[in-house]
Amino acid sequence: MRWIAVPDKRGAPAVPAHQDDPNHLFDDLIRVVARQPLRCRLILTIGVPGDPTNDATRPWPSSTRSIDAGAITINAVQTEAPGNGRDINFDPLVLPDGIAPSDDPLLSARSAVYARSFTRRAGEPKQPSAIDVAQVPDER
């Protein structure tokens, strides 16, 4: 199975452009989510025997069956802080019982590299997040 999150653009407000501000992508996302939730459709593509699972660069045939499995809704954004995203290693091989990794070699490589980056990040002096959600002014 492969999956993809497809942005749902319906009713999305136009984002003001502040390309000169180095934080504009963060700030714009915070402003958009403050007005209305962001939605993505979760599309699952169901493989059949013979579809390549060990090479993410090889697409599956376009005739492969897809399922719209539901919506991913982002309705709040939080400042990076102890205990949320800052302290988590998104290791693709830490899986709940019932889900097994495929033979995709990228999973092992990501697991190894993320473990190293998590270790380095853990040893750095801790500073407050450069982006503070509460400090971003709403420019309606």
């Binding site: 092992s108 190894a112 590299v113 473990a115």
Partner: peptide, 10 residues
Amino acid sequence: MVASLSYYPL
């Protein structure tokens, strides 16, 4: 382990 990419999980 810490030097390997593909064998790290094993």
